[in-house]
Nucleic acid binder design. Structure first.
Lengths: 189, 189, 189, 189
DNA sequence: CATGAATGAGTGTTCATTCAT
DNA sequence: TATGAATGAACACTCATTCAT
């Protein structure tokens, strides 16, 4: 890997590490540069400002699951809905474990509300994994494998919200919460 | 109301307003003092530091629903579980609307993790409304009005997680998300 | 003792205690009021400002030795010069032990240079104990009990300077330092 | 001289200038930065905090006389003791004139008592010029050029104490005070 | 006489960002 | 490409002081 892109990747991962370890408020340019082993000025060779760095870091983390989620809607009808959803959340919670704190912090910032694009939730249309998840749920519903009165958008958000419990380190795992939702979404046998 | 306590209350409510409007990061002592119509120094006559102010603000917001939640466990068996839970979340989402951003932001801060006491979720034992909610669910389960394999703690956290969707202003309401969970928790008819 | 003057005395002594214990920089109105067991506002019932409080505190401490020093010049010719000087410094170091830090700190402050009146050293004329000490030395010199080339003003300052060693807690006692000076001031036998 | 070190030196000298001119209490980071012609933030690129700046400033001033004092003990037996001591104090008073107010102020601060290392006086062992002066006096005493009952440590502190008279701008010069001490230390002819 | 409440001016310190090298 | 040096603006917090009660 050539030097330029490697430094860029270092910075993205350093951002995720610092935000997950020290919290959003302490994810300063200084801490990130130190974690990446470069100078602060180097950040600005690769990103126009701190916000762009954070946004890119979240996208970078998402990229690892994007591929799997891209194929998700096509799997409607396969296996069982419960297993599929469990795997969805499991992947999101596991692979993006370090990205969630940063993502939530950005989500909570009203000033950042406008630049939400590739993030967890968008105002009108979902994108990335959430969008694929919504599409998958819609497909399953039209196959009759989901209760008819379940709104795919609502279900998607409810499922994603369970990731929040992981971010704050509460006792039960994400899996436990998902279980409850799955029960509520499946059609009566 | 005498002058001292009134200023204190002003500050608590100004803190909630600013945090909800401008975000946690921009809830500076300056902005809060301005919102409250007092000087910054006045903050420090009423609270030892900013963290204590924030903690007190969250407690102040919680106090408004604490009374209602205190009577919640005793209502197990009355009305329907679904209606009760819907009212719970409705009250939390409605009355504490302005406190949620602050509460979540504090929850996400690893350095604040130790001083979590009267907040949304505590490591081992829940306190405040969440604790009452957990007790209520346990009571309903022993009445057979809840599926036996539902863990009250898990269900509590899953329900509270739906409040997150309100904080980020996503489309569906909290009520919609709660509906799904309720379906998953009720025993088969 | 009536209530007013007692509070005033409390404040003067609290000032000396706090300055000696915590240093000049931490001798704030808050700390002094707390030590005295009164409110900060009470300070301003008894003194126009903090500077006046500090000046009065030094005078208050000096007052305890003023009486003895007033009779010092008249004792020229009695006992031995060495014993007399030793007693002088012993009294200053002992009785004013807690006042020295405050006095030195005020002396070192250029802005306070103008308001020096009843303090350790004044630009032109000495006052208080230092003035009496200077007068005593002049009297001894005219009696031939001091070397003729010893300048009373210089000797006074040199003796007082040894108090500085006490303030910083250095090993040797003031007595040890005075001994050296006495040797240098006595006439050849 | 490259840019970095030059700024650092500027800051050290600005610190001495401001402390000598305005007093320790008014030697704020703002005033020092202005005197040095840089921004306040620049201070923190060169020193971790204000205390480190002040400590370094005192060391910087001492460095100018350290070299001369390093060779002092080896000069025992040369010239006359009186001339040697006069030169010692003359150098300390002259070259470090601007450092003395800062050094004394730090010495008087009880909270700084622990970080005293390269300063005027240390609890157990002297360092820097004072240490060399003590060693020199011990050497002269073993040569019989000092009275046998003079303790080198005590004599050192007594000599250094005379510098205090310079700091407060009292009339007589340091030289005058030293003269008295020298008389008291020399052996009878 | 005493104080609880309030504050304007200031403190040391940190931040994201720029720029000459 | 990368960085050491620098900074304006902002931060949480403290100070001596005032005033209505």
């Amino acid at each position: 890997m050539p030097r330029g892109p490697r430094t860029r990747t270092n910075l993205l991962e350093a951002t995720l590490v610092v935000a997950a370890r020290d919290g959003y408020a302490r994810a300063t340019t200084r801490a990130i540069a130190e974690q990446a082993g470069v100078s602060e000025a180097t950040i600005y060779r690769h990103f126009p400002d701190k916000l762009a760095l954070f946004g890119s870091a979240v996208m970078h983390a998402n990229a690892q699951v994007d591929e799997w989620f891209a194929g998700l809607p096509a799997r409607a009808g396969e296996a069982s809905v419960g297993d599929n959803l469990r795997e969805c959340l499991h992947r999101l919670a596991g692979v993006k474990a370090e990205a969630i704190p940063l993502e939530l912090a950005m989500l909570l910032d009203p000033e950042l509300a406008r630049s939400r694009e590739e993030h967890l939730v968008a105002g009108a249309d979902l994108t990335g994994p959430p969008a694929q998840l919504e599409a998958y749920l819609a497909a399953e519903r039209s196959l009759g494998r989901l209760r008819g009165d379940v709104d795919p958008r609502t279900a998607t958000l409810a499922l994603l919200a369970t990731l929040f419990t992981a971010a704050i380190g509460a006792g039960p795992t994400v899996d436990d919460c998902v279980e409850l939702l799955v029960h509520g979404m499946l059609p009566p046998e």
